[in-house]
Nucleic acid binder design. Structure first.
Lengths: 155, 155
DNA sequence: TGCAAAATCACCCGAAAGTATGACCGCTGA
DNA sequence: TCAGCGGTCATACTTTCGGGTGATTTTGCA
């Protein structure tokens, strides 16, 4: 960008000033301003050039943008806190007991151990696992655990 | 905020205008300006008020606040990149085949399915799992998978 | 209050998983 | 060269898992 282009505003301003002075002189000669109207005359000039100044300022310092950068932290995988995916639980229609069984299953417990932990019989645990597998559409406990983790049913 | 406070700039501007006019009149009386110096006089006024205009514009114009929300994603456990915990593999003295079996085990495959996938017999897979369980000091495949995940042996 | 869902338990049976043991082969490092 | 290890496979056996079916009790909700 050349000097002319870069300072176009200022050059225009200077030209405007010259034109205004010329006009004023011309008006002065034409109508022979009365002494009393000098302050009105000054006022008009002042207003005019104030407007010019404002225009200049706005034009010249164009991008007065205060950019406020707000960093929004998005945690993709919570570190310790595990949040149960309620939607999946509802979608699969899993009962509380079934989810509990799945949890201990994922921890590596056998059906008998889960039965002992939940104070129920082995048969009951078997019923729960069977229902769980049917609802999750899997065949084995390892598949259930794998899918359960992927769906956010277990940590 | 009251009217006065809100329009302080404009009121100041008005006052400045009045002061300038008063000064000019005073100077006029004092020194009796020559007709010839009228354009210089106008020039000075113009410059003064242009400056005032610029100052006004700068002061008045609120810096346009542009709020840019930068979403900063914080990955705690990278979902795609899995790095095998070599140290644990060495510590437990796990062979390549055993690790491979563990991997498919975690995916929910049965021993027969793993055998088919690795093009070996079911008995071979059983041998590998047995060795794996002994080295990992676990009793069941679900335990092996759980521990494997915790030790970073599998994704 | 009454009903559907959940939870509980039982029995049978076959499939899968896990245990124990032994054997063979190929590679590698002392 | 040969002992050791990893990988392979096999047989035999026990345990656990999972499917199928049926039944009773408890509970949450309309």
């Amino acid at each position: 960008m050349g000097f002319l282009a870069r300072h176009r505003q200022i050059i225009l301003y200077g030209l405007a000033l010259a034109v205004i002075i010329f006009l004023v002189r011309w008006l002065e000669i034409r109508y022979i301003l009365a002494d009393d109207s000098v302050d009105i005359y000054i006022g008009v000039i002042a207003l005019l050039f104030t407007g010019l100044g404002v225009w200049l300022a706005i034009k010249l310092r164009k991008p007065k943008v205060e950019t406020v950068i707000v960093e929004k932290e998005i945690l993709l995988t919570p570190p310790v806190v595990f949040v149960l995916n309620e939607n999946e639980v509802k979608r699969l229609n899993l009962s509380r007991r079934e989810l509990e069984v799945l949890h201990w299953m994922a921890a590596g417990l056998s059906n008998q151990e889960i039965a002992d932990k939940l104070f129920v019989s082995l048969n009951t645990v078997k019923t729960h696992t069977a229902q769980l597998f049917e609802k999750m559409e899997v065949k084995r406990r390892t598949q259930a655990v794998d899918l359960g983790k992927k769906l956010g049913l277990i940590p």
